[in-house]
Design a protein around this nucleic acid. Structure first.
Lengths: 304, 304
DNA sequence: ATATAGTATGACTATGCAGTCATGAATCTG
DNA sequence: CAGATTCATGACTGCATAGTCATACTATAT
């Protein structure tokens, strides 16, 4: 075993953890959590690590810092080690392990949380820590080992390690029946006449317009919109007021009973399909037995 | 990230390394390497770890100690972490990583070492550390993470992770031509008349006897043996003296040129076949990029 | 019973490191 | 430009821990 780490001074678990915190927060001040005193400690710890390893770990850039490639590597290594030790300690105390999962608000709301009971059973007493984060950041964070699992919208190449495809999101239009002038309203009529809440996703908006023009229905720009929002959750809440219709992921349908709400498939819109995939960190899985076990269970249970 | 390890006192990398050393050596005195002073330190460090984790890590048994299951787990975890950190530090200094491989003397001699040049090339500057150890211990040590790779004689179930079958050892009989009364001596005649060096493997010995009795040749117990030895290497050395024939793995044949030595297949003896397999530790492979890369290369290059 | 080979423990020292504080330096923003 | 934000540095304190030593304890072998 290579014991050079222990015979030389300048390395400690504490420094490693500090560095990981900085890496996670993206800045020293951020990692110091407002504590001005901690800032100086962290700054020094990073310098000591750099001296110890003989490499730059961060690059001072402007009035902030960015990790170097080596720094990213070390942060990932450190995170996996500290988590593994934490798991081990938790196990010794029969204390629950924490498993983190990051996803967009809407996926958490309509894909993960409805299945919570089953998930908790599969996790055998582990505690789930849910994080919501914007879609692009999730993949990176999972790669860094900051989250154990992530749900993202992308294809998975067959046999790819650390990823599993869960299903394809289908958007639908839902409207309160009370709002309908006639019960047999067509999709195109609904889209042109009903006040509507739709997320501010450019592609969705333009797909609606394109569809309407194919149907020779003049879209009334702005007029048929009651609300533009940044999340399907807001659209869902708006829909619940009964004041407007909304475009939501099909998964949300369970919240809107058939007798009070009517829904239309948006298949005619030929929207781009978004496969939802579960991803996890391979190194984390190897080091945390719970993660490797759960990756199988989660990819089954979250399928839709 | 679970930071309970750092906020509570009683844990340190040093203690973890000490515990791993004790686990590897099997005793505190052994790990102390003769240093009587270190013994007391190690004993205390183990107790502190036990207090920290709130679990027994070793069980005092007689005048020695044995690891508990939890202890074995922690030792493996610690070893993989310390090695991974060591690798990282080595990488930062552009220093070579050490990759350890354990096998029986004969496999090292005739399977590994002849391919050393190719192996070193595949390992891209890593240093190979060869250990010889008796066959049964190797699997356990690899599992503990003490060795990165091991060569053992057992079957590999298809798709088994951390293992690859390399080939099937075929024993052969080799004799110096100078020793032969006639150049066309049959296998049975050779086995009954030539002085012979064979390893003290009970199965090999009784297979020879069984074969001879099938051939209605009376084995002359003891008489046809010049040497019983505990390793094929000894048999090989004896063979080189020219004074006796020897049963050796087919791999050894390269050392004995056709013009000076004659060899017979032992296929008629219907010996039990021993597949040789390369095994490695999955956790180690996940944590040491070099190991996971090499596992593919080694299982190809060591095939025979 | 005695020797021996192992572990355990108490008492101490030295040191490396986290924690703390004040202040400086570099960079961006209005 | 001033002011704000962020990182860097030097100087100090207190504490946890590695290191050291002497000795006690325990099980096994003869």
């Amino acid at each position: 075993m290579n014991l050079s780490i222990l015979s030389k001074s300048g390395f400690s678990l504490d420094r490693l953890a500090g560095f990981c915190a900085v890496a996670g927060a993206g800045s020293i001040v951020g990692a110091a959590r407002g504590d001005a005193v901690r800032q100086s400690l962290l700054s020094r710890q990073i310098r000591e690590l750099e001296e110890f390893f003989g490499t730059e770990l961060v690059r001072r850039q402007g009035r902030g810092l960015v990790l170097t490639d080596v720094g990213v590597e070390l942060a990932a290594l450190g995170r996996s080690q500290i988590t593994a030790l934490g798991d081990f300690a938790s196990n010794c105390q029969n204390a629950p392990i924490r498993i983190s999962l990051a996803a967009s608000e809407s996926l958490l709301q309509w894909l993960v949380l409805p299945r919570l009971t089953a998930l908790r059973k599969a996790a055998a007493g582990a505690i789930f820590v849910l994080h919501h984060e914007d879609n692009t950041a999730i993949a990176a964070r999972v790669q860094e080992g900051l989250y154990d699992f992530g749900l993202i919208r992308r294809k998975v190449t067959r046999g790819e390690p650390g990823a599993a495809e869960l299903g394809v999101l289908q958007e639908i239009l839902i409207a309160p029946r009370a709002l309908l002038p006639r019960p047999d309203l067509t999709l195109a009529e609904a889209l042109t006449t009903l006040p509507m809440a739709i997320p501010l996703a450019g592609t969705l908006r333009s797909a609606v317009d394109a569809y309407l023009s194919r149907q020779s229905k003049t879209p009334r720009p702005g007029m048929h919109l009651a609300l533009e929002c940044t999340s399907y959750l807001h659209a869902s809440a708006a829909l619940k007021t009964g004041d407007c219709a909304a475009i939501l992921p099909g998964l949300a349908l369970t919240e809107f009973p058939e007798d009070l709400y009517r829904h239309w498939s948006l298949a005619p819109l030929k929207l781009e399909r978004h496969p939802v995939s579960l991803i996890w960190n391979q190194r984390n899985a190897a080091v945390r037995p719970m993660v490797s076990g759960l990756s199988m269970a989660l990819s089954k249970m979250l399928k839709f």
